[in-house]
Design a protein around this nucleic acid. Structure first.
Lengths: 205, 205
DNA sequence: CTAGTGACCATTTTCGTCAATGGTCACAAT
DNA sequence: ATTGTGACCATTGACGAAAATGGTCACTAG
C-alpha cells in the first residue's frame, strides 16, 4: 500500500498558481523547440526567472512536467475530434470524421510538431495517465457515436454494445496511438477511408 | 538505372552450394543465440571453418545473411498459417484460424525466439524483401479465403474484391507486422477474436 | 579456372573519464 | 507560514581515443 501501479508522475503544491502556469508555458515552448531530452529543468527555471529548486515545489519530477505538456497536446487533438463529430449529422458521418480527424491531427502533430509528437509517443509507450485518458476519451466518443447510430436504426443492435465498441476501437488503435501511428504514416490517406468503410459495413443492420 | 529502390541485400556466387547452406545454418544458430548485432561475420566464418573473406563469395553483406535468416523465419510462420487454413472447412473458419495462427506464431516468436523476432521486426521496419514477400503472401492467402467465401455465398459480393481484401489486410496489419505486433502483445488473446468477429460481420452478405 | 585467404582500409562500436543533469534539503527572507 | 534559493549528491550523458567490425582485393594453391 503506497506505490502507484505504473509510474505516475504527479504534481504537487497548489494546483492553481501563476508559477505553475508559467512553468507549463515555458515547458511547452522549450519542449516543442528543443525537445524533452535537450531541455533541462534549469533551462525552464531560467526562462521563468526562478531557481531550479522552486520548480520542484510544483512538479514531482521532470517527467511530471512532460506529462502536463503531453496532456495539453492530446487535449487539443481530442478537441478537434469533438468538433468534427459535432459538425457531422449522421452517425456514419460522425464516425468517418472522427477517424479521419484523429489520423489527420495525429499526422499533423508528427510533421509539424515533431518534438511534441515524440513526447506523446513516449507517453503512450509508457502508459502514462495522459495517454490513457486520451485513449479512454476516444473510446467514450466512439461509444456515443455507436449508441446514437443504434438508436437511430442506422447501426445493427444484435452485437453487445461493449463488444462492438471494443472491436472498432481495436481497428482504430494503430492510428490513434501515437506510438503506432508513426509506422502507418504512409497510410494516412487511405486507411481511415478504407477502414471506415469496413467498420460501417460491419455496423450495418 | 542501376540502383535498387530500397536496400536489397543480395546473395552472390552459386545459388546451390554446401558452403552457402553451412553459412545459413551457422547464422541461424548464432543469430538466434547471440542476436544479429552481437554476431560478427568472423564468428560465422570460424564456425564453418573458413575465412571471413570466403563468406563474401556467397553473400553480398552481413545484412544479406540476416535477410536469409529472416526469410526462413517468416516462411515457417507462413507454413503454419497455410496449414491452419487448410485444416478449416468454411471460409469464415479459415479466416479465423488464419488470423489466430498469425498472431500466435508471431507472439511465439517474440517470447521464444526473441533474437529472431528482432531481426524480423527490423526487416519489416526497413522494408526488406523478406518482409515484403511475407506480407504479400499473407495477402494472397487472404484473397483466396475471401474469394472462396464469396463463391460459396458466405460473404457479400457488392464491394470490389480488392477493396475488401485491402481493408481486411489493414485490420490485420498491426498483428501481422512484427514491427507493430510488439506493441499489441497484451491483446494477443482478444484482438484476433474480436477483430475476426468484426471483419466477418462486415463480410456478411 | 576454382577454391580460398591474409592483409588492409574506412567506418562503427566500445570504453573510460569527466562535466552536466535530475533531484533533495537545510536554510534565508518576508 | 509562505516564497524562494544555493549548495550538495548520485546518476546519466557527452566526448574522444582505442579496439573491433564490415567489407574489398590482390594474391596463392592446386
Amino acid at each position: 500500500m503506497s506505490e502507484n501501479e505504473s509510474s505516475v508522475p504527479q504534481s504537487r503544491g497548489p494546483a492553481e498558481h501563476s508559477v505553475r502556469e508559467q512553468i507549463v508555458e515555458a515547458a511547452e515552448a522549450h519542449f516543442s523547440h528543443y525537445g524533452y531530452e535537450k531541455t533541462t529543468v534549469s533551462d525552464l527555471a531560467k526562462a521563468i526567472g526562478f531557481s531550479k529548486a522552486y520548480i520542484y515545489k510544483f512538479f514531482d519530477s521532470k517527467q511530471a512536467i512532460g506529462e502536463a505538456i503531453c496532456a495539453k497536446t492530446l487535449s487539443t487533438m481530442i478537441a478537434a475530434v469533438e468538433r468534427a463529430v459535432a459538425d457531422a449529422t449522421t452517425p456514419s458521418e460522425k464516425f468517418r470524421r472522427m477517424f479521419k480527424t484523429l489520423v489527420e491531427t495525429g499526422a499533423g502533430l508528427f510533421f509539424n510538431e515533431r518534438k511534441l509528437y515524440d513526447i506523446a509517443a513516449y507517453s503512450a509507450g509508457e502508459g502514462w495517465p495522459s495517454a490513457r485518458s486520451y485513449c479512454e476519451r476516444i473510446r467514450e466518443i466512439l461509444t456515443e457515436v455507436v449508441r446514437e447510430g443504434r438508436e437511430s436504426g442506422e447501426f445493427e443492435r444484435k452485437t453487445p454494445l461493449d463488444e462492438t465498441v471494443h472491436a472498432v476501437d481495436l481497428v482504430m488503435q494503430p492510428y490513434v496511438n501515437p506510438l503506432q501511428l508513426q509506422y502507418n504514416l504512409d497510410l494516412v490517406e487511405e486507411a481511415p477511408v478504407q477502414l471506415s468503410n469496413l467498420v460501417l459495413r460491419s455496423l450495418a443492420p
